[in-house]
C-alpha cells in the first residue's frame, strides 16, 4: 500500500466578517474534513453550492488560509503554495490575463521557477504543452479574447502543467462549458492523467461527470464530509440520505429511453 501523495487531516476553515460596530460574524465553511489522495488516482469531491468543496481545494493549493488542520504532500507537511500542486479553475474567461499573450501566460510559471531557461527553451516547452492539450502553436501569439471557452480552459491546463505538477486540482473545470466541449476537456484530462502520471483532485457538482472521471468520491454537505467511497459503489449503493437525494435528482431525468 503506497503512501498517499496528498493527505488532509481535520481541515477547518472559518470565514470571518469583521465590522466596526457589530460582532465579528463567523461562518464555518469547512468543518473537520479529512481525506487522502492516492498516487495516480482521481478523487472527486462532490457537493452543491455552499458545501465547501471549493474552499477545500483552495486551502490545499495554498490560496486560502485555514484555522486548523494539517495538509501533507508526500508525507511532508505543507503550508502555503507548492509548485507541485497546481490548479485549474471554473471560469475559463477569468483564468487568463487579458493583457498577456498566451505564450506569456503559459511561460509565467517557468519564469518563477528557479530553473534557468532561456527564451528558446521556454518557447519549446510552451509548444510542447500546446500540442499536449491539442491546440495549434499559432495560438501562442494571440490574446485570450480570440479564444472560445473550451480553448481557454485548455490553455489553463497547459499553464498548470508548465510547472510539472504531481497533483492537479480541478475546480469545476467543465461546469461552464457546453456538453460537446465538456467531453473534449474531460477526455483530455483523463488522457493527461495517464500520460503525465498525475493525481487529480476533481471538484464538481455533476455526478455523471464524476462517474466518468473519478476513481473515488467524497460527498460534502455544508462543510462536512458525509460519505466517501469508490465511485461505482457509491452510485449503486449510496448510504447517506444526502447522497441518495443527489443521485435521485440526477437519475430521475435519465430514463430508459435516454440511455438506449
Amino acid at each position: 500500500m503506497e503512501n498517499p501523495i496528498l493527505s488532509v487531516y481535520d481541515l477547518k476553515v472559518i470565514f470571518k466578517k469583521s465590522s466596526l460596530l457589530f460582532k465579528t460574524q463567523k461562518k464555518i465553511a469547512v468543518n473537520d474534513v479529512s481525506f487522502e489522495l492516492k498516487y495516480g488516482e482521481c478523487l472527486a469531491i462532490v457537493g452543491e453550492s455552499g458545501s465547501g468543496k471549493s474552499t477545500v481545494a483552495r486551502s490545499i493549493s495554498g490560496l486560502q488560509s485555514y484555522e486548523h488542520g494539517v495538509i501533507t504532500f508526500n508525507g511532508e507537511r505543507i503550508d502555503g503554495i507548492l509548485p507541485e500542486i497546481q490548479m485549474i479553475f471554473q471560469d475559463p474567461h477569468a483564468s487568463l490575463d487579458p493583457r498577456m499573450t498566451l505564450l506569456d501566460s503559459i511561460c509565467e510559471p517557468m519564469a518563477q521557477l528557479k530553473t534557468r531557461m532561456d527564451e528558446t527553451e521556454r518557447t519549446n516547452l510552451a509548444e510542447e504543452l500546446m500540442s499536449k492539450v491539442g491546440l495549434d502553436n499559432s495560438y501562442l501569439k494571440r490574446y485570450p479574447h480570440a479564444l472560445s471557452g473550451g480553448q481557454k480552459q485548455r490553455i489553463g491546463i497547459a499553464r498548470a502543467l508548465a510547472s510539472s505538477p504531481k497533483v492537479l486540482i480541478c475546480d469545476e473545470p467543465v461546469s461552464a462549458l457546453d456538453v460537446s466541449i465538456q467531453a473534449q476537456v474531460l477526455n483530455l484530462l483523463k488522457s493527461l492523467q495517464k500520460e503525465m502520471d498525475l493525481s487529480l483532485l476533481f471538484i464538481s457538482h455533476d455526478l455523471s461527470v464524476v462517474r466518468f472521471i473519478a476513481d473515488r468520491v467524497i460527498v460534502m454537505q455544508k462543510g462536512e464530509v458525509v460519505e466517501e467511497g469508490e465511485t461505482d459503489e457509491l452510485i449503486q449503493n449510496p448510504e447517506h440520505i444526502y447522497t441518495k437525494k443527489l443521485i435521485d435528482s440526477v437519475s430521475c431525468m435519465e430514463s430508459d429511453t435516454f440511455l438506449a
Binding site: S61, G62, D91, A94, D97, E108, P109, G156, R159
Partner: peptide
C-alpha cells in the same frame, strides 16, 4: 477575485510581481 491572479500566485508570483504584472496593466 479573478482566477488568473490565483493562477499567478500558484505559479509563485510574489505580491509586487502580481501588482505590477497583472493588476496595474489591467
Amino acid at each position: 477575485s479573478m482566477n488568473y491572479i490565483d493562477a499567478a500566485r500558484l505559479n509563485g508570483c510574489g505580491t509586487l510581481k502580481i501588482i505590477f504584472n497583472h493588476l496595474i496593466p489591467n
